[in-house]
Simulated assay, not measured.
Amino acid sequence: MPEAKETVLEIDLGNLAHNYQYFRSKIDKNVRFLSVVKAHAYGSDSVAIARKLEELGTDYFAVAYVEEGIRLRENGITKPILVLHPQFTHFEEIIKHCLEPNLYSEKTLRAFIETAEKLQQQHYPVHIKLNTGLNRLGFDPPELPRVIELIQHTKTLKVASIFSHLAASEDWQERDFTVGQIDLFRKMSWQLIENLEAEPLLHICNTSGIINYPKAAFNMVRTGIGLYGFGNDKTVDPALKPVVTLKTIISQIRTIEKGATVGYNRVFTAQDTTKIATLPVGHADGINRIYGKQKTGVHINGQFAPIVGNVCMDIIMVNITGIDCEEGDEVIVFGGKYHPNDFAEAGGTISYELITGIQRRVTRKIVNG
């Protein structure tokens, strides 16, 4: 019997390097590269991922929240870090740890100027977010004169970048909308640049934008999901390599007779004599109930085993009838040649939600480091 292991999320830094180089190859050598490592680097390990990306030559990092940036700083990451959604209460921490805030409203702009003045800062790098149609965060066009006025009347800030976010860059049916966003971003950016006499970085291209709208690269692009092996396009995905693989083991095998039921609420009934394997992974680990009732499954020794019954908190059961396997054998939930996209889509969701939902109690294992 193979040596027993545990449920692990393998993080392949070789695959990360491959994906980074792929997206680098799509932009001019003078265009800077921002790597998004928010949400534990899309569910993996932000420190390990950021260290590798810094080694590979990324120019910038982005995180969602201040504590994510602090963790990177405390683990030796030195490249600039943009905080995409900072809160007022953390502005002093931002300055203390040399992080760079996204200022997306008059209230955030005023508050950060006040904090920077109190801490006697000069030309502290900040990023101005423009709303070009996603309608999430950012200044609208009529607000720009006020932005210009506030920045002109302080020496505490330096506009490091002006940026926006594309709403549907992966969808060719939304091409007119996307082109409109890019045009509006260009106009709004130049209004700021002309009045502030600044030379900031400009970035609007996300992963799909890099692929589909290369002329909108300006002087920086940013990618998150692409680095982890997802191109948001079935024609691009084969060129990328998923960074994470979720593996587990078979804890127990049992044979049940026709008519026997499996799991909570008895939602699976055996139609014949059936072999069932129990695996130590469940919805508390990120494999949610949407994947149960044979919507999808796992792979054991190269063969597909559907999930039967409801997903439990710590356990799933799979049908291994006809599969040659033993207790302790390795199980691939997703990853490698079993693309996470397929697993996610079978449950009616997207890869982003699947990979960022793998909980921290699952052991992380770095490979090809």
Rank of each mutant, 00 (worst) to 15 (best):
V281M: 14
F23G: 10
D183T: 14
I315A: 11
G292H: 06
H299N: 06
M1C: 06
I77N: 11
D342H: 13
G180S: 15
L13Y: 13
N75K: 09
P80V: 07
K26Q: 15
F112M: 00
V267M: 00
G224P: 03
K118C: 05
A270P: 07
Q87R: 08
E330Q: 12
K107G: 00
I250L: 05
A62H: 10
S251P: 00
N15W: 12
I253Q: 12
E3P: 09
A116L: 04
G231M: 08
I225V: 14
L99F: 07
S208C: 11
L56H: 03
T273V: 11
A260E: 15
G347I: 04
D45Y: 10
N131W: 03
E174V: 06
E92W: 08
D171T: 07
K215F: 10
K258R: 12
I204V: 13
K52A: 01
G226A: 10
L34E: 13
G76D: 14
N288G: 10
V63H: 08
S105H: 09
E93Y: 01
H203D: 01
N341T: 06
V63F: 05
L246F: 10
L9S: 13
R289G: 10
G297Y: 13
G309A: 11
N301T: 07
H40I: 00
K118L: 13
L84N: 02
Q120E: 15
I182T: 08
G328F: 10
K38S: 08
V308F: 07
V221R: 10
N219S: 11
V179F: 14
V31T: 15
T349A: 09
T89K: 15
N75M: 08
V159K: 00
A167N: 04
G292R: 02
N19S: 08
G348S: 08
L34A: 04
S351G: 00
L354F: 08
E68L: 04
P242R: 06
F218I: 07
L34Q: 13
E114H: 09
E114N: 10
T58V: 15
I211N: 13
D272N: 02
F268S: 05
I94L: 15
G369P: 01
I225A: 12
R289H: 10
I151Q: 01
I210K: 11
S164Q: 07
E197W: 07
